[in-house]
């Protein structure tokens, strides 16, 4: 009886594992097989090297995704530049400096930040952050990559802080004690001992934050202006891969070139996030090897 139970549980877990793998393979297959049709009518050269995306053009439609890829990377990198130092700093403060009382209040508050719907953050970007950005940089419109980066940073911060803090707290006390005993200051201990020891967790948190920023849709759709032109600086309006799909998929005629092209854009997005995750896995793995 127990043996059968064991077997059943074993198969249950095997099945759950397989389902996830199959889901991933299925999504990849669906995206791939649908987007392949797009390239019957769009040349690969146009798709990957043209920066003109205008499927609903008055005249001849065009399908080039360069400016969308550039836009996606701009807001992502921009958000990481803001969120990573701020996130690690906050995590270090919470794990090493803050008193128990402060931590008990601040940590839940940060986690609540993660629960704010993206549409609300996007709205704040239009009415609050955008105008401030415009004032600071003396430009007319604050709906640009800087605005998007700030908002995405806010959305990535809870992940980065929470996971980094966990990683820092998990560093064995003996490390800290040994470092302090050798005469290192609290600051030296934090920077030279604890952060390197927790680096794998911190890196993982940053990668997850990056994944969130690449895939985020509503906020960038509302707050970055979505002008299709190629952005030349962080003060220009940007239109990410996600916002293009979100804007256009609702009204597109099924099985048209435009429809297939949007799936191809989805495939590109999928490959980008896949590479990010793979890279973070490899970095983590290598790091753990060296460290152990």
């Amino acid at each position: 009886m127990n043996k059968i139970k064991d077997k059943l549980i074993f198969f249950f877990f095997l099945l759950s594992g397989l389902i996830v793998v199959m889901l991933l393979a299925g999504i990849f297959y669906l995206l791939g097989s649908t987007s392949i049709h797009a390239f019957k009518e769009i040349s690969l050269k146009q798709f990957f090297f043209s920066d003109n995306w205008n499927p609903n053009a008055y005249g001849e439609p065009s399908y080039g995704i360069v400016s969308m890829i550039v836009s996606t990377f701009m807001v992502t990198i921009g958000s990481l530049v803001i969120a990573v130092p701020l996130g690690i700093g906050t995590a270090a403060y919470l794990s090493d400096i803050a008193s128990e009382k402060v931590r008990e209040i601040v940590k839940p508050v940060i986690e609540i930040l993660a629960a704010i719907p993206s549409v609300v953050i996007g709205f704040l970007g239009i009415v609050l952050i955008g105008p401030i950005v415009a004032k600071i940089f003396h430009i007319q419109s604050g709906l640009n990559a800087v605005n998007g980066s700030i908002l995405l940073a806010v959305m990535a911060l809870p992940t980065i802080i929470s996971l980094s803090e966990d990683a820092l707290t998990a560093v064995p006390n003996t490390y800290t004690e040994a470092s302090l005993a050798l005469g290192a200051t609290k600051w030296q201990t934090l920077v030279k001992v604890k952060i390197p020891a927790a680096l794998s967790g911190i890196l993982a948190s940053c990668m997850l934050g990056m994944g969130r920023a690449v895939g985020e849709t509503m906020t960038v759709l509302m707050a970055t202006g979505c002008a299709p032109a190629m952005p030349h600086s962080f003060l220009d309006s940007v239109r990410t891969l996600t916002s293009s799909i979100a804007i256009e998929l609702g009204e597109v005629a099924y099985f048209s070139t435009h429809y297939y092209a949007l799936f191809a854009v989805g495939l590109v997005l999928f490959i980008i996030t896949f590479i990010i995750n793979l890279a973070s896995d490899i970095i983590l793995h290598n790091y753990q090897k060296v460290y152990n």
Partner: peptide
Amino acid sequence: SNMRQMNGNSQIIEAVKTD
């Protein structure tokens, strides 16, 4: 292609108000 593409009437009004 430099036109900012907004998500609705009220968003356009919000943007024009401050620009």
